[in-house]
Amino acid sequence: MSETVLEVENLTVDIPIASGMLHPVRGISFSVQKGETLCIVGESGCGKSLTSLAMMGLLPKTAQRRTDKLLFRGEEIGDLPERQMSKLRGGAMSMIFQEPMTSLNPAYTIGDQLMEAFRRHVTRDRAVARDRAVYLLEKVGISSAASRLSQYPHQLSGGLRQRVMIAMALMCEPELIIADEPTTALDVTIQAQILHLLAELQDEFDMGLILITHDLGVVARIADKVQVMYAGRTVEEGPVNAIFEEPAHPYTQGLLRCIPVPGKTKRGERLGSVPGIVPNLVGDLEGCMFRNRCPHATAECDTAGEQLAKLSSGDHAHACIRSLADRAAIDASSTKAAE
């Protein structure tokens, strides 16, 4: 019944820099179905934004991308020439960026920008394009849509601009939307509205949605599937309930302890933290990349692989060499030793 829109297998991005080869994305695999929301969550430097750019073929010139599979609607797009890729990008696959002001051209009206891709990909007919633009602006909750067409981006507030961006992404009836931190620059109230809108539209048009964010609150509310990234690898993946209720990887567990949750964490109580910083991803890398920040790390982790291992409940997998029970046992013995 469900149809896979995008399938990525073993995506790797390498960037040569002065001090050696940087490996910001080191073998990521995932897939998105129609009508499904995948959230890629991670902190700055984990490679989540480069992953999204790699899917769209928008990486910087020096970066090298390798994939075993990059299937869009079942067709390999990894080796498409730039010309066809750009056709795909404006059409069946579209992107929403964090900062709407920098992705809208200040020199053109909202209407021109909305209609541009549509007239390039779908039909030259201006009237049809205009009708669709007005229809979508109303759809994303912009009042007096027809008169907005002649306005310039700077005349709109941040929330409105992000709505315009969403309308623009929807113009050519995409089957997949990739949204990179779409609400980070917005106020909380507007953020809720925009996410609500995205979820609604996704339902209505049966699109695949890949949402990239660092905000666990956003992930919990909107995702179907979650992919937790750390240092260029997926450290945990699974259905949203499993991730939040039974986080398995020490990093996911640590992240969830870091955020204050009204009603759960007590006022003034100390929050958990993940000490240390993200490792340098230049050169040859060996072992688990999280070991320098992991409270359970032992000597084995220096050489451990980072393969995802399935957990009991179906799709839920994590990339730690030890199971939850093992870690608890190790911790218990080490506290005993300390005593």
């Binding site: 909750g141 912009i142 929330g159 409105l160 709505r163 909380v188 109230t189 507007i190 953020q191 809720a192 509205q193 996410l195 609500h196 979820a199 905000d215 666990l216 609150g217 956003v218 992930v219 919990a220 509310r221 909107i222 995702a223 949203v240 309930n241 991730i243 939040f244 209720e245 969830l256 955020i259 949750v261 009204p262 009603g263």
Partner: peptide
């Protein structure tokens, strides 16, 4: 406020934009 609770959906705020 988006508390990290997957059981709750995206809230509807009823605030004009």
């Amino acid at each position: 406020v988006l508390t990290p609770d997957p059981k709750l959906g995206v809230p509807e705020t009823h605030l004009g934009a």
